[in-house]
């Protein structure tokens, strides 16, 4: 819908803006959690890991606020058409963001619990792969939520398909680490942890893809352009 067509009831537009602000808050927090998790992994920083673990409550709180707010909008505005799709999708998008927050938390927990973890030194061949994957995930998340705020289905469509890249990158790293483990059996516990951590990033990629799908649905009312296999 063209942006010049505002709701006759102005407060409905204000409500929808508020929803976007809540999403930006949630997204900023989740990206921060991912960034901290990546630092904690590289530096083996248990203090940071603990902070991530604690801050997950904040992520949950904003998700809950979005859920409550969307429920109120459904009851109060009885939305139809694109508004209905937007508000119902808010529940899904919020859940997906909250889950990405959980993955950051999982990474932190692994560092807190594991006795095998240690720093990923500059010299470690997988330090770079790990950093690259983290960066890609964080950038994608940033982009997808920008597309959400701008109601940009075209970008969302592209990001939706790009999920394959994260998957491929993950499987490639997985293979490399596996081969490394075979050659260095004494390091198996440490690298098992690292595989687990990478898996969380790969899952975050799936969630981003879900969000992209929701954006396409909000805008087009269908999932018109099917994801290519």
């Amino acid at each position: 819908m063209s942006p010049e067509h505002k709701h006759i009831v102005k407060s409905f537009d204000q409500d929808l803006q508020r929803l976007q602000v809540l999403f930006m808050e949630l997204n900023a927090l989740v990206i921060l959690q991912l960034e901290k998790a990546s630092m904690a992994v590289i530096e083996h920083d248990k203090h940071m890991a603990k902070k991530i673990y604690e801050d997950d409550d904040k992520v949950d709180a904003i998700e809950f606020e979005i859920t409550q707010f969307s429920l109120r909008l459904l009851a109060q505005r009885q939305p139809l058409g694109e508004d209905l799709r937007r508000i119902v999708s808010a529940f899904k998008i919020a859940t997906n963001l909250e889950r990405i927050g959980d993955y950051a938390e999982n990474m932190a927990k692994r560092i807190l619990k594991s006795e095998n973890h240690r720093k990923l030194h500059e010299s470690n061949p997988f330090r770079q792969s790990f950093l690259t994957l983290t960066k890609v995930v964080m950038n994608r998340l940033e982009e997808v939520m920008k597309a959400y705020v701008e109601n940009d289905a075209e970008t969302a469509q592209k990001l939706w398909k790009k999920d394959e890249e994260i998957n491929e990158f993950y499987w490639q790293s997985f293979q490399e680490i596996l081969n490394f483990m075979i050659a260095h059996p004494q390091d198996i516990p440490f690298y098992t942890d690292l595989l687990f951590i990478l898996k969380n990033l790969e899952r975050a990629g799936d969630r981003i893809s879900n969000i992209a799908e929701s954006i396409v649905f909000i805008k087009l009312g269908s999932l018109k352009v099917k994801k290519e296999n």
Binding site: V9, G81, E82
Partner: peptide, 18 residues
């Protein structure tokens, strides 16, 4: 019709836009 109308005028009408 109420979740995904095809026409822009319908869309505006059912979402309460001027």
């Amino acid at each position: 019709f109420f979740t995904n109308p095809q026409n822009e005028l319908t869309q505006r009408y059912i979402t309460g836009r001027g």
